[in-house]
Design a protein around this nucleic acid. Structure first.
Lengths: 363, 363
DNA sequence: TTGAAAGCGTTACCAC
DNA sequence: GTGGTAACGCTTTCAA
């Protein structure tokens, strides 16, 4: 690999000290405009790009953040969330000179170990905590490690900075939609209850139904997979008092549910209405097209990156309060910092997208 | 962030020089067994983990490799390949102390720039070139940059080390399967012809049909998406002499094709047989279950990582011959190095998986 | 076998 | 405003 040009050569060409080059190129004061221009010119001529290796050692920063995906590879395959989420992270990290280090853990404890090693080797300046579990062990871990971290859609009282996207408003819209269609018997195909986001969705659903004076009905726990949705359909559709409207915790499960309903000869939406959550592309193509809640993984990623960089660059403590996003996006007048403890941003809520899989109650 | 223990403290505790600690911990000669043991003990006691920052600066290596995904985020969403592929990369990189840096480029030239910056900033020691295009500009770029790189499923004559998974054997199996079912009118829903892997699939298909004395039939170019598959179905099924068997270049397109066929009232497989390529999970759940070719993204990732590390650690030139994988996986007695120019590994071929979407010719 | 010291490419702190 | 120079934490000579 050809030897790259270093700061020394730039200094030589500009006829200044390397410290001046450093100051000039990082737009720090202490350099006259004339010299600064001359230095920038020299750097340009030479095609100088500072070595992140030297920079990290000296600046005590890795200029990288980590994301550990803890996931059965089988499930990851069809997960629509990550592509956009990572794209969102990247869109903020890259312009600010940070790289994203992606790791995959399979077993839960292995995942924890990944964080430990990332911190121990000073590989990253902070990490993103995604798919939070109830009492997620990663939270005390990063706190103990002193590793800056941000959460994505955490539970209330989460002690670190976090990005949230509200689900309750969208779920209320869904419930109103279903109620207005005359439905009375409801069911929910939930995600694993150990996940915070699964819990959020069940709770929003129950609360919205209760607020509408409806019986929340059954909750069947599935696992966010297509196959899980199918099994839930077998269960629910076999019941004598089967529901007329089903809300699945994600689109993949909803599509699995619809497929199985079709197989069992139960027509959607004539005999049963089905709604999903996520707003994945596929939902627009299946027959009938899936009614769902559109989320913003890309925006979640971008905001998560912003918060993380704020925590990293401004202080560094894991529990340190990150700056709150611009007020325009903060929901319903809630003081996000006070409400959550760790500070954070709330992005636009998930919205209901009505398509063909929900319709009037049968009969 | 709490101060981590450095090599200096380990040396102090063991009562030796830091150079001895370095030698001992990296299992290099020049340290007596006794001191080595004492040093390891001290390192353990202190929980010492070498800082990758210091290491990279000194060793002139980043201990990281890059993967730039060049992709419309919309498409990435449903791409089943990346999760497993990245998992495969990681499974080799991590145990060897390397991290994976993931970048996303949207525009083609932006992607090239990502590689340039990765190299210029000495962020990575090498890169993985995935989804190769015909005459991919990344190839001359990495050669010019002197950046070690490996290709995944490249065209013949590819000048860099590469991993390949043969498609022709599987496609021949598919053709035999279809021919034995009595089909005579075929069509292929191809991927964009600028992609090497799309070309591989069309060519394998044409060659297999010709070898079976069948007319290769129509080739409709789509884009590997669900929607592209649907549009291809609209096109092909509207023709007077419509095919009775269609091979789609990937599963997503095949599923889109089937959905549209269903909508148009053309039954699969009674009136038309449909086959895909990839072996994604979803294909097993759609109705009818999709006949497809199972590929090994995880294995491709693992082998790509192995080749890349060989190139990085053994010499470093981009065009340097990487060691060939163990003979057991090399296909058909072909000397892979001689055949490809850049050296590389051939993994088990993609295999036909017959399910319900292919059946006897109508009539 | 061991230890001292010179880098590696930056940043940051001080003198000048 | 400048230009030395000491870190940063490691690897790698080279003497002892």
């Amino acid at each position: 690999m050809a030897d790259r040009v270093t700061i020394v050569e730039v200094a030589a060409r500009a006829g200044v000290a390397i410290s001046s080059v450093s100051s000039a190129l990082n737009d720090r004061p202490g350099v006259s405009d004339r010299t600064r221009a001359r230095i920038k010119q020299a750097a340009d001529d030479l095609g100088f790009v500072p070595s992140v290796r030297g920079r990290s050692l000296s600046a005590k920063r890795a200029f990288a953040v980590g994301l550990v995906v803890h996931r059965d590879p089988f499930v990851l395959e069809s997960d629509p969330f990550f592509g956009s989420f990572i794209g969102g992270l990247e869109s903020v990290l890259d312009p600010r000179g940070y790289a994203l280090i992606l790791q995959m853990g399979t077993a839960a404890d292995e995942t924890l170990d990944r964080y430990r090693r990332l911190a121990a080797g000073r590989r990253v300046d902070g990490v993103v905590l995604n798919e939070l579990a109830v009492d997620d062990p990663r939270v005390p871990l990063v706190q103990q490690l002193g590793l800056p971290a941000v959460g994505v859609n955490p539970a209330p009282g989460f002690p670190l900075p976090a990005v949230r996207q509200d689900v309750s408003a969208g779920v209320r819209e869904l419930v109103e939609h279903l109620v207005s269609l005359g439905h009375r018997r409801f069911a929910h195909v939930a995600g694993p209850s150990r996940f915070v986001h699964a819990v959020h969705r069940v709770e929003a659903w129950r609360e919205a139904l209760i607020a509408s004076d409806r019986d929340p009905g059954l909750v069947v726990e599935a696992d966010f997979t297509y196959e899980g949705g199918r099994r839930a359909a077998v269960d629910l559709l076999g019941r004598s008092d089967r529901p007329t409207a089903v809300f699945c915790a994600n689109d993949l499960a909803a599509i699995g549910f619809m497929t199985e309903a079709d197989r069992l000869g139960v027509r959607v939406p004539e005999e049963i209405s089905v709604a999903g959550f996520d707003g994945i592309e596929l939902g627009g193509y299946v027959r009938p097209a899936l009614t769902t809640m559109t989320t913003s993984p890309r925006l979640l990623g971008a905001e998560a990156a912003r918060l993380l960089l704020a925590a990293v660059e401004g202080g560094g403590a894991a529990a340190g309060g990150a700056s709150v996003g611009d007020g325009a996006e903060v929901g319903a007048g809630v003081d996000v910092v006070a409400a959550t403890g760790g500070g954070g941003t709330e992005i636009e809520p998930a919205r209901l997208l009505v398509r063909a899989s929900t319709g009037a109650v049968p009969g």
